[in-house]
Structures are given as structure tokens and as C-alpha cells.
């Protein structure tokens, strides 16, 4: 008993490592973002700060503006008003004030984007290995052998049989395609990954595997994630905190389990009470 309680106590490093995450600098900041396609269609009055290592879930029903907000945050859709700033090292980049070159460079190096439909995020006619290697090649990697080694490593990471390295994703199942898309995004060592319903089109058993993989990778790589999902179970599993969207606005934000277990806003209460519990 005492061996367990004292000899192997795991509190030795406690005081030193406590503030690591708390005092880190913000990674991304949105100020008064607004992008509307019609009254309450799109997103408006969006302001928040994202910190390194945080997983932020955007939840809400279809049409609430989650995906519009994700596109605006990820540099794909300029806002009507407001701005998005991203911290690149010591440097704050105003996403839409900077050039497209910088924005794209961010998107393929420090950022990732996992699409709901893997066909939108993969190059279907080229091999799995080339899909994984593309970001590295875009960054100037010019050694075939090393590109291949990275591809093999990442296939292992995402639990795809390495013998499939030269197959095109057309021959893959939906779950494998999604895992390949994840590998293709993470190979460049991004700090921030955007995910749009990453398990949306998949069978439940396949979903579980992807969620498990994402959970693991997010922790191992200390990724920040902005995740769009309408599935509150997915949100609970992956997200540290949530922003609940309804009719283009954020109606409630907070710690994931607090939002789900003690929702304050009438809409959130309705949303949470509508889930079937199994």
C-alpha cells in the first residue's frame, strides 16, 4: 500500500507544470465577425479567443451558421465585417488583411482542414502516399525516399495497412478515406485543425474509430481544433468547450460538460433535452 501511495506518487512535478496551458498566448482571435447571406443566415457578432491545445466545438442545428463561421475562420470566406487574427510565432496575422499567399501558406502548413466528405479533401486520382506527401512537397521536400517514409509513418498513425500506400483512395472505404484525409492534413505538423463534421457520413462503428483516433492525435500532437458538429456526443467526446449557434449567433458558450449538463439558454436546453440517451 505505501509503495503505491508514496513510492510511486505522481505529484512530484506538480507545481512546475500547472500553468503551462493557462498562461500561454492566444492562438486565434475573432472580433465581431459577420458574414450574412440573408437575415440570420450565415454568422454574425462572433468574437472569441482560441488558445493552444484547445478543442473548440461549434454546435447547433443545420443552417445555424456553423459551417459559414468555419469557412470564415479558416480563410476560405472573407467576412462582411470583423476580423480574424492568427498568431504565427511572435507575429499576429490579420487573416483577410494579409495576402492570399500567406493565407494559403498557413492553410497548408500550420493549419489543417478535415472535410466532412473525404472526397473533397483528398486527391482521388493519386495514390495514398502522394496524398500524404503533397503538403511536404509543397513545402519543398524533394527526396522521394523520405517522402515515402513519412507516408508510411502516417499510414501507421491512422491505422491504414501500409501495403495500401500506392493505392488510390477510390479503392478505400469511407472510414479509411477519412483517416487518410486526417493523415494528409497532419503530416505538416499543423497547430490548428478545422474539422467540419469529420464523422458525419460514416457508420457508427467507423465513427467510433475515427473519434478515438482524433482524440489520441489531438492529445499527442497538442493540436488546437475548431470542430463543427451537430452531434452532441461527438462534441462531448472531443471538445473542451462549446459555442452553441442558433440563427447565425452564438447563444451560449462554455465548458463542454457544463453546457451539456447545465445548459442555460432556452435553445441549448431544448437541444440537449432532445438527445436520446443510450
Amino acid at each position: 500500500m505505501s509503495a503505491l501511495a508514496h513510492g510511486m506518487r505522481m505529484d512530484a512535478a506538480l507545481p512546475a507544470d500547472v500553468p503551462a496551458m493557462e498562461n500561454s498566448q492566444a492562438l486565434m482571435q475573432a472580433d465581431g465577425l459577420c458574414r450574412l447571406f440573408g437575415p440570420e443566415q450565415g454568422c454574425q457578432d462572433i468574437s472569441f479567443t482560441l488558445y493552444p491545445g484547445e478543442v473548440l466545438g461549434l454546435v447547433g442545428e443545420s443552417g445555424s451558421g456553423k459551417s459559414t463561421l468555419l469557412s470564415t475562420l479558416s480563410g476560405r470566406l472573407p467576412p462582411d465585417r470583423g476580423r480574424v487574427r492568427y498568431r504565427d510565432g511572435a507575429d499576429w496575422v490579420d487573416l483577410y488583411a494579409t495576402g492570399e499567399g500567406r493565407r494559403r501558406a498557413l492553410l497548408r502548413t500550420q493549419w489543417g482542414f478535415v472535410e466532412q466528405n473525404p472526397r473533397d479533401g483528398l486527391r482521388m486520382p493519386v495514390s495514398a502516399g502522394a496524398n500524404i506527401g503533397e503538403r511536404l512537397m509543397a513545402q519543398g521536400a524533394r527526396h522521394y525516399g523520405r517522402l515515402r517514409q513519412s507516408a508510411l509513418d502516417w499510414l501507421r498513425h491512422v491505422e491504414i495497412d501500409i501495403s495500401r500506400i500506392d493505392d488510390t483512395p477510390n479503392a478505400f472505404s469511407g472510414g479509411m478515406q477519412q483517416r487518410l484525409q486526417i493523415a494528409r492534413n497532419l503530416v505538416s505538423g499543423p497547430r490548428l485543425v478545422f474539422m467540419d463534421e469529420p464523422t458525419g457520413g460514416l457508420d457508427v462503428s467507423v465513427q467510433a474509430r475515427i473519434l478515438d483516433l482524433l482524440r489520441k492525435l489531438v492529445r499527442e500532437l497538442d493540436l488546437s481544433v475548431i470542430l463543427v458538429t451537430h452531434d452532441l456526443a461527438v462534441a462531448r467526446l472531443l471538445a473542451d468547450r462549446l459555442m452553441v449557434m442558433r440563427r447565425s449567433r452564438i447563444v451560449e458558450a462554455g465548458l463542454t460538460d457544463q453546457i451539456l449538463d447545465d445548459p442555460q439558454h432556452p435553445y441549448t436546453q431544448l437541444l440537449v433535452s432532445s438527445i436520446l440517451r443510450v
Binding site: 496551458m21 493557462e22 467510433a208 478515438d212 482524440r215 465548458l255
Partner: peptide
């Protein structure tokens, strides 16, 4: 939220009688 999470990681432990089961873990 991040401060609450940091407190939960290092300071606040919580034990209920129910395990939150995560598939495949």
C-alpha cells in the same frame, strides 16, 4: 473554460460511481 480545465487537470479530481465509456479505449 481553459482555467477550469487546467484546474481539473492538476488540482480538482472528481469521482463518481459512473464510468464514461469511450468506444475502443
Amino acid at each position: 473554460p481553459r482555467r477550469v480545465l487546467a484546474a481539473r487537470r492538476h488540482t480538482l479530481g472528481y469521482v463518481s460511481q459512473f464510468l464514461r465509456v469511450i468506444p475502443r479505449v
